[in-house]
Design a protein around this nucleic acid. Structure first.
Length: 283
DNA sequence: AAATAGACCAACCGCAGTGCC
DNA sequence: TGGCACTGCGGTTGGTCTATT
């Protein structure tokens, strides 16, 4: 017996989400928390399948998401992690708070892959292309899965803004590694503890540039006005130097992140904190 | 100004994993 | 133990935007 489809697709809407749909979904989750996704569309009055709702929420509507391009530091993290974990995007994303697996995957495919190739590094194996080509000619030697190594280990690269210039491209692999160690130090690529991730609670306006969706129907400006009480849609990941962490500390921000993603929301919702409260929950 | 190509990214698809009955 | 429901994940698609011709 075949498996039932995740939802009855007849009459269900597909494609880009409208602002109205976003609003409904956010209001529903803020009011009720996350329950079984299958029931969400019905209860929220949406003509979407539960899966679509979950995806929309986790990849776009969650208030703890950073928007905007990945910083150099985040890119380096992604490369390091990819060298250890391969295409396990969700695992990689778990080390980059505020970033989704989808976002990282897209960024990898559209930016990082190209940069690595320009540097003469094979994005699949994280080895110099010359070596990979040699190995391709020797089919006996099978390419192995990237070996698990500490972050900052020999498969990490220096991928700074000038990594595209010919100077860097001409570096040997060993020189590149040396450059990495000089720039960051081998021990210096920390894993970010998810528990330490916090969100801005100030009232500064969200810059429009943080609304990166190119889809006009996804105009998320309304998100600012939504029912997250005095909640700041974070743009701390959007600054040039990724000094967001500093901003977070300076702004006395509060943790909204949790391992399971939502226990804090649940706390908020269950504790009868008034919607008008300027305290966005202290955890 | 229009056409085309390439880049980007949100969303979809289908399979795998997990937990419950 | 097997079937089912549900969630999570990674690969892929397709629409939109931007740059180039």
């Amino acid at each position: 017996m075949g498996r039932q489809p995740c939802c009855d697709k007849v009459g269900l809407k597909k494609g880009p989400w409208t602002a109205e749909e976003d609003r409904k979904l956010i209001n529903f989750i803020l009011t009720n928390g996350q329950c079984c996704w299958r029931a969400v569309p019905k209860l929220a009055g949406l003509l979407r399948c539960g899966k679509s709702c979950r995806l929309r929420w986790t990849n776009y509507l969650r208030p703890d998401l950073k928007r905007g391009l990945l910083s150099d530091y985040e890119e380096k993290m992604v490369i390091d992690l990819h060298s250890q974990l391969g295409n396990r995007w969700s695992k990689i994303a778990s080390h980059l708070p505020g970033r989704t697996d989808n976002e990282i995957k897209n960024h990898w495919n559209t930016h990082i892959k190209k940069k690595l190739r320009k540097m003469g590094i094979d994005p699949l194996t994280h080895k110099p292309l010359s070596i990979v080509e040699q190995e391709d000619e020797e089919p006996v030697k099978k390419l192995e899965k990237p070996i698990e190594q500490p972050l900052g280990g020999p498969t990490s690269y220096c991928l700074t803004k000038d990594s595209n210039n010919s100077k860097n491209m001409s570096l040997s692999y060993n020189d590149q590694l040396m450059a990495i160690n000089l720039e960051y130090g081998v021990e210096e690529v920390p894993l970010i503890d998810p528990e330490s991730i916090e969100l801005i609670g100030s009232n500064s306006a969200m810059s429009s540039s943080t609304c990166t969706s190119s889809n006009s129907s996804n105009d998320s400006s309304f998100l600012k006005d939504l029912q997250f009480p005095d909640f700041e849609w974070s743009d701390y990941g959007n600054d040039d130097n990724n000094n967001g962490v500093d901003n977070i500390i300076e702004n006395n921000m509060m943790s909204v992140w949790d391992v399971d993603g939502f226990s804090n929301w649940d706390l908020l919702l269950n504790d009868d904190i008034p919607q008008s409260s300027s305290t966005f929950g202290l955890f």
